[in-house]
Design a protein around this nucleic acid. Structure first.
Lengths: 188, 188
DNA sequence: TCTAACACTTAACAAATGTTAATAAATTAA
DNA sequence: TTAATTTATTAACATTTGTTAAGTGTTAGA
């Protein structure tokens, strides 16, 4: 799915609009392990993932990495709080695979939004979806056991779960790698 | 703190704007235990809490109540996903105390936003703050023990924690009432 | 006021999860 | 490729948290 198809699913676009959008984004490639965004930076970009998987993580008070989200291809990614509030981010965004991004910076996104008003609607929908995702994540952490959380994750992200190192998934679920290893043994 | 003072803290207002805003909201009073919003309803209002404390909760697959958030006076409250996406809410919003609200419906909020453009900024800031709150909540549930979560809650919400029934706090923290009772004994 | 319903506490035990440490497997670098 | 490093698995044990059940307030109506 191209970026145009992804946006077109939410707000249907004319050919002219498609061209305007396409020209506003530029390609960026990263290798496995590279950080696209580092903590302390201002995140002034939003990106569409053409290829690969990203991990968003932050460091806790002991310096351990806590994985917040995984984003596979055909989704949009950013350090949203930083992008929206124009403050330094606490998050790191790391390429788990070799990845290909289509990026746009804040100014160009504003210009594009003025030229193509539908982009405003699309931005709102992206924000709303993220909001709903966070609500579901809170509900899950609050009221399900580790095994249920893992099984739910399997159902919803079965396609990418095998490509993500176990330790990252464990951190995402809020458990130790050893415990996740144990759960996997019991489930299979 | 009045609603005008609360908004004025975020976007400074002229006297005319203050009057326009004040006239757009209307008073609603509820008694302890009343539901302002019930699951299944469309939430078409946003409210400022003049007095009292609210609890937002939903029901899990077994019908148990899971408490998501507590909102004390001098904050704004809504079932945001429902309000934003105009879909039926899964949440219930309950008065823990006798409460007094200042409410505005979607249409009037849109009209007000057009008359007082700063209200757009205020709406954005409210959404951003909620977003940050949710991020912190995820981090807490993901990487802290129940005792740490309780102690953090004491630090940040010490003023209201004593007014909220223990069972609701336990559910909010993702633990059983018995376990919270045990933690309290150990801490004091 | 008395009683019934509900909320909170406590304790014993069970289940889930963390910790430590050792080993095996996989990946990376020379 | 081999050696070094990282990652994953396994097991024994410790700690945290859930479950059940009983007892003790507390509150709200009859």
């Amino acid at each position: 799915m191209t970026i145009i198809e992804a946006i077109n699913q939410i707000v249907s676009l004319t050919n002219d609009e498609k061209i305007l959008i396409e020209n506003s984004f530029s390609v960026k490639r990263l290798s496995k392990g590279d950080l696209w965004i580092k903590e302390g930076q201002y995140c002034n970009h939003v990106a569409y993932i053409n290829k690969g998987i990203f991990r968003i993580f932050y460091k806790d008070e002991y310096g351990s990495e806590i994985s917040c989200f995984f984003m596979p291809k055909h989704n949009f990614i950013s350090s949203y709080t930083s992008f929206l509030t124009q403050t330094p981010t606490k998050e790191n965004i790391e390429a788990i695979d070799d990845v290909e991004l289509l990026i746009i910076n804040r100014d160009d996104l504003e210009k594009l939004s003025k030229k193509v008003r539908k982009i405003e609607t699309w931005r709102r929908v992206i924000a709303e979806n993220l909001f709903i995702l966070m609500e579901r994540r809170i509900a899950m952490l609050q009221s399900k056991t580790a095994q249920e959380r893992y099984e739910d994750m399997m159902k919803e992200n079965g396609d990418i779960i095998l490509k993500i190192p176990l330790q990252y998934i464990a951190s995402f679920l809020g458990i130790t790698p050893q415990h996740l290893s144990r759960l996997r043994k019991n489930i299979d």
